[in-house]
């Protein structure tokens, strides 16, 4: 048992080492870029990672009122809130649709091919047209985040409900359980791990969507700031800071879903504790 724990620790160590290696490679390339004679502005190609960090914690203001990290964080917060709104709406609709599809063959038959098609349609490419529909940049950001969230959640949850063994259905039937009990006691709890698989896929997508829609119109948000920094309105390091922060937010949103899943499924915790 101690061995298993040791093994788990060592795999965390390996991931950590890989992450370090990633940054090491980054720095090496940055050195090479810096020393290359043909590259005139190295900070546009690949700056040192530590320089990005340094800019983040630099006390100097860059637009008169805010320091770099204050400005990025201000915009990141707005982006996060918008994508969270879209994410929650999309996840709820996806979950409800999965239940409807499992309840009714007709709804399932109608919706399934269109769900397949939605997956193949480049929704992000449709961001501009949605903006022209709603006329309001804020609601189109939320809608796009919702559409991107909705599909993985709906299909994964439905797959979870359909993966429930025949015997569990027979068991419920032998207890003369009604539809409501079948869903609340068996199908919905059984689909929770699948539901979270969907959430893990769509959480970073919702953030991507929100940033992308930002770039279509000015205002506040990480994407807007990204466009501005690319146009040279402020130091190039702000752009890099945005790249790093948005990557970090995407990864964190994925990890957060995993933590949330662990928090609500007590049996996993108990089983892990037992294995240790």
């Amino acid at each position: 048992m101690a061995q298993i724990k040791k093994k788990k620790n060592s795999s965390t160590m390996v991931t950590l080492l890989w992450t370090l290696a990633f940054f090491l490679i980054w720095e090496l390339i940055a050195f090479w870029v810096e020393s290359s004679a043909s590259i005139r502005s190295p900070e546009k190609v690949l700056p040192h990672f530590w320089k990005i960090v340094a800019v983040a914690f630099d006390g100097k203001t860059i637009n008169g009122t805010d320091t770099a990290i204050q400005l990025v964080w201000l915009n990141a917060k707005v982006t996060l809130i918008r994508s969270a709104q879209g994410f929650v709406i999309g996840a709820s609709i996806g979950f409800l649709l999965a239940i409807l599809m499992s309840l009714s063959q007709i709804i399932k038959k109608i919706a399934f091919p269109y769900l397949m098609i939605i997956q193949m349609i480049p929704i992000l490419g449709m961001a501009p047209i949605l903006l022209s529909f709603t006329g309001d940049i804020d609601s189109s950001r939320i809608i796009i985040a919702a559409i991107l969230t909705f599909y993985p959640v709906a299909t994964n949850t439905l797959a979870g409900m359909e993966a429930v063994e025949k015997e569990k259905h027979e068991l419920m039937y032998s207890y003369a359980a009604n539809k409501w009990q079948l869903y609340t006691k068996t199908l919905i709890p059984a689909s929770i791990p699948y539901f979270f698989t969907g959430l893990k896929v769509s959480a970073p997508l919702a953030i991507t969507a929100s940033i992308l829609v930002d770039t279509l119109q000015g205002g506040i948000g990480l994407g807007c700031l990204l466009s501005q920094s690319l146009k040279g309105a402020m130091t190039r390091y702000v752009f890099w800071l945005i790249v790093v922060i948005s990557a970090a937010i995407g990864i964190l949103s994925y990890l957060l879903m995993g933590l949330l899943e662990d928090a609500i499924s007590s049996h996993k915790k108990a089983e892990r504790a037992c294995k240790r």
């Binding site: 795999s11 160590m13 390996v14 991931t15 950590l16 080492l17 890989w18 992450t19 990633f22 690949l46 959480a203 970073p204 953030i207 991507t208 940033i211 992308l212 770039t215 994407g223 990204l226 690319l230 752009f239 945005i242 790249v243 948005s246 990557a247 995407g250 990864i251 949103s253 994925y254």
Partner: peptide
Amino acid sequence: AGGITLASAFNAVPIVALAPV
């Protein structure tokens, strides 16, 4: 396995950040 975990983290990086880079 650790390397694969790192690779899967790239899945979560927004495309919009990659394009200008």
